[in-house]
Simulated scan of single mutants.
Amino acid sequence: MSKLTNLMGRINYISSHDRQDNLYAVYETSERKFCRELEKCNQEKFFKSGTDGKCIEARELIIALPESFVDYNPSVLLEVFTNHFKRNYSVGCISALHYNKRKTNYHIHLIFSERNLLDEPIEKVAVRNMFYDEAGKHVRTKKEIFDGNVQIRLGCRIIPKGEVYERKLFTIKDSRFKSEGFLDEVKILYRVY
């Protein structure tokens, strides 16, 4: 399992016929818009946390398949594997079925979200004007974002009273994907195949 720090880049890489000589099928349980919003949400949460390192936007499993599976319809095979994962973990997935260059390793790339989309977005509305400095941090007064000429400094912003200043589209990350036993659980999940 890999932690993905460039979700859209990785999706484009595994699903592109131009970049993959032996790409047989691509299957998505959620739209690309979901992935773009997920990437944005994870980046925002990471920035707010002030944590060092890289933002984990999603995770990827690479599932090796028996050579005999080349006899199955690639689209159906990929759909069955991906839907089986989605049914068990209730997360958005994008997958691709590949062979390596020497055609010795038939495998699935299964990218999945650690967050779920909320049924209804949660929005926070400003009850008064809100001021943000160049770093995107909330400050108390407008004086803190003005320069010496009483102009808003470059990169600072004001959110007027009554406007949405925060929109939450996703749940928190599901901690089970970080747990020690998750990969063992996935191995058991796919052992039936």
Rank of each mutant, 00 (worst) to 15 (best):
Val139Tyr: 10
Phe81Tyr: 11
Cys35Ile: 08
Ile111Asn: 07
Leu77Tyr: 15
Arg167Tyr: 03
His17Leu: 03
His98Asn: 05
Cys156Gln: 11
Cys93Glu: 10
Gly136Glu: 08
Val80Thr: 07
Leu154Asp: 14
Thr51Ser: 15
Asn12Cys: 00
Ile122Met: 11
Asp133Met: 10
Ser175Cys: 02
Lys187Asn: 15
Tyr132Gln: 15
Asn88Pro: 07
Lys168Met: 06
His138Asp: 14
Tyr190Met: 03
Glu166Tyr: 13
Lys45Glu: 01
Lys33Ser: 04
Glu114Gln: 10
Glu31Cys: 08
Leu118Ile: 05
Ile14Pro: 01
Ser179Ala: 11
Phe177Ala: 00
Ala25Phe: 09
Asp21His: 05
Val26Ile: 13
Lys173Met: 03
Thr141Gly: 04
Arg128Ala: 06
Lys103Arg: 10
Leu77Ala: 08
Asn149Ala: 12
Arg115Met: 10
Phe112Gln: 03
Lys48His: 11
Cys35Gly: 09
Leu183Tyr: 06
Arg19Cys: 00
Leu65Ile: 04
Leu118Val: 02
His98Glu: 01
Arg176Lys: 12
Phe46Val: 02
Gly162Thr: 07
Ala96Arg: 00
Glu166Lys: 14
Asn12Phe: 00
Glu60Met: 09
His107Phe: 06
Gly92Val: 05
Gly136Met: 11
Glu123Arg: 01
Val192Ile: 13
Glu185Cys: 05
Ile145Arg: 06
Thr51Trp: 15
His109Asn: 02
Val127Phe: 12
His84Lys: 09
Arg10Leu: 03
Val125Asp: 07
Arg191Met: 13
Asp119Glu: 07
Phe47Met: 01
Phe47Val: 01
Asn22Glu: 14
Phe81Val: 15
Gly148Leu: 10
Glu57Asn: 10
Lys178Thr: 14
Lys101Phe: 03
Ser49Gly: 02
Leu7Gln: 02
Ile108Thr: 11
Ile111Arg: 06
Ser90Tyr: 12
Gly53Ala: 10
Asn42Ala: 04
Leu118Ser: 02
Phe177Thr: 05
Lys54Asn: 13
Ala64Gly: 08
Asn42Asp: 03
Phe146Ile: 00
Lys142Val: 11
Ser179Lys: 09
Ile94Tyr: 01
Lys124Tyr: 10
His98Met: 07
Arg87Cys: 11
Tyr193Leu: 02
Ser75Asp: 08
Ser16Glu: 05
Tyr89Glu: 10
Leu23Tyr: 12
Asp184Pro: 05
Gly181Tyr: 01
Leu65Asp: 08
Arg157Pro: 01
Ala135Ile: 09
Thr29Ile: 06
Lys143Ser: 15
Tyr132Glu: 15
Phe81Asp: 12
Val76Ala: 08
Phe182Pro: 06
Gln151Arg: 11
Arg140Gln: 10
Asn83Phe: 11
Lys54Gly: 14
Phe146Gln: 02
Arg115Tyr: 12
Ala25Thr: 14
